[in-house]
Nucleic acid binder design. Structure first.
Lengths: 342, 342
DNA sequence: ATTAGCACTCAATAACATAGAGTGCTAACA
DNA sequence: TGTTAGCACTCTATGTTATTGAGTGCTAAT
């Protein structure tokens, strides 16, 4: 489809644009890259590349800018991958985190590291509790007014909301209720645990039923609360270093986008294959991100998704660096997860 | 110091400027407010007010803008307080939250409500764990690889980090260690719990010492982790509705400021009296907030600080609304806290 | 003491000119 | 036949200048 020279020119255009953020013209190109042909020839090739939809001319007298289709070709075919030692160094930080007990923290810290290494915004996302199965539930009395409900799901999420007790319940009774709940609810999908189910169960424990009735509401409120989307943002303000966000309206809409947890979550969870996925501008399902690209890593063990890490930036993103960094970081994370969850 | 007419004019200037964000001149003033005198007279008075430092002229041919000193007078002397029914309505949301078990959530939700009611950014801040005393510590075995360490402090903070176990320890032994730690550490200030202390203690439990040694590191890592500053930001993007942040650099520096957890924390914790404090522009200790104002509520029971809520915005803040809202919300929160903590 | 009148200031806006980077087309060339 | 120099043309960005209007301080009259 594209001869070698066209590919070389397209690559040069993309790399230059990623670097400078300015539309790149034939003269600049021939000066800056060793293409072996004159600007006039480059111009002809560029006209062809535009006809094919790989580059776009913002206006008649401007240079060319890569299109989403252009970036896609670049990413799929001829993007150079860096193997930077410095990255390895920084990733050692992750090693220090081996002792992190909870996957949310791992995602939080990793996304911070990603944003630092890439200079874009990074997003960590834990799988939604609602979508997982209950592995273990346990009520722990703390003092006369509080107990902690510890919940562990099949994908390793640990939640432990505090539940306030209005009536005093003996530790022993809490223990009995706890064992009972764990016995009956174990293995159920969290979203299937509904009020009526627990109400039915509470009838079985007749001598406690009045107590149980009272804490049902609390337990449900807590189940609901822990079902909040766990999303970790880092490096959001990095966008101010990018010329595309010098326009206050652009910056505003990007920042507002990052406040939309539901949107981000459904955007990112749409990646279900393990490994890296890249979605470029118009390829994204939502209008709001049509001029952004995401590089997303999905972490799976067998068929269970344990979390997502994503780097989000303008379509003029330094894919090469981002993908390299993501690969490196992902390697470390998969090691951690493998040690822990199987 | 100021005659009645000067006060009326100053008040008009401040209210107009808070509303319009544009320097206000004598003609506008006489048209928009019923001051009973001509623009020329107003001009003379304004010249005096400027000499006294209450207002400032950005440039020769512009109107006047209130100075920090002007706002201070306004806030202290003649700011009208609203008693809005709508606020009461919205505050009912807080009532719904009575079941919140943890003070962090209360601060988180309240700050969200504050930002919604005021249209400024709101900050919730929990007291630092490091500064509190240990009321209760408890280790709860969860599965063969994890236990939860539940920590309750004297000011009602509950933390429960997951601790990963590398060696299997029987539930019974965990129980023994837990009781022992609680027994010895109870009442100590968290920052006084140092490695050497626990090491000394571990010697007492000679028959466990090898086990304890191993989990000391874990416990300390966790103590360190839960000592992170708990700060909750809401409504940050509200600033984009304010003309002062139409300048991308201004917006950037404000947003970056809100990322500085340590700075914000030390700024806000400098308010130690219970009730409302207002700090205006240059009154703030840090250079970074010299063109911002904060309205901060400190929540105390007896002499223990339970948390802070703060609204932050430009010095041209609608103090009247913010203070009114804060008063209302604070009333509800103090009720909740009183019910819970005494 | 107050106010109308007036000359003056200065930011913001608009209107216009210029420079510069880039293009497409044509004709000459290897 | 593919490549390239030359050239007229386009369009943004930038800088310059003129104009407008809100606002002031001062003076003199009320």
């Amino acid at each position: 489809m594209l001869n070698e020279r066209k590919l070389k020119i397209l690559q040069a255009i993309i790399q230059d644009y990623i670097e400078t953020a300015a539309p790149v013209g034939s003269r600049t190109l021939s000066k800056r890259y060793d293409l072996g042909v004159s600007p006039a020839t480059i111009r002809n090739e560029m006209a062809d590349l535009e006809d094919l939809g790989f580059i776009i001319q913002p206006h008649t007298s401007a240079g060319r800018v890569p299109s989403d289709k252009g970036y896609r070709l670049y990413v799929d075919q001829f993007m150079p991958l860096k193997k930077i030692e410095a990255i390895e160094q920084d990733c050692l930080v992750l090693y220090l985190l081996q002792e992190i007990g909870e996957i949310e923290q791992l995602l939080q810290y990793s996304s911070r590291i990603l944003s630092q290494l890439t200079n874009y915004a990074a997003i960590g996302l834990a799988p939604q509790v609602k979508e997982s199965r209950l592995e273990h539930i346990q009520l722990v009395p703390v003092d006369s007014n509080h107990m902690v409900m510890i919940i562990i799901t099949d994908n390793g999420i640990i939640k432990k909301p505090v539940i306030r007790l209005n009536d005093e319940i003996s530790d022993n009774n809490i223990q009995i209720i706890s064992n009972f709940l764990n016995d009956r609810l174990h293995g159920l999908s969290i979203k299937n645990i509904e009020t009526k189910l627990i109400k039915a169960l509470s009838k079985e424990l007749t001598h406690f039923s009045n107590l149980i009735e009272k804490i049902i509401f609390e337990i449900f409120q807590s189940l609901d609360e822990i079902s909040n989307i766990d999303i970790f943002l880092n490096g959001v303000m990095n966008i101010f270093n990018l010329p595309e966000y010098n326009d206050i309206l652009k910056a505003k809409s990007f920042l507002k986008l990052l406040e939309e947890k539901e949107l981000l979550s459904s955007l990112i969870t749409s990646f279900e294959e393990g490994g890296l996925s890249i979605s470029i501008g118009s390829e994204n399902i939502y209008e709001e991100v049509k001029d952004c690209s995401l590089v997303t890593a999905t972490y799976k063990i067998d068929d269970t998704i344990l979390g997502w890490l994503s780097v989000i930036g303008p379509t003029r993103m330094d894919y090469s660096t981002v993908v390299s960094v993501m690969n490196q970081v992902s390697k470390f994370i998969m090691e951690l997860l493998n040690n822990r969850y199987r």
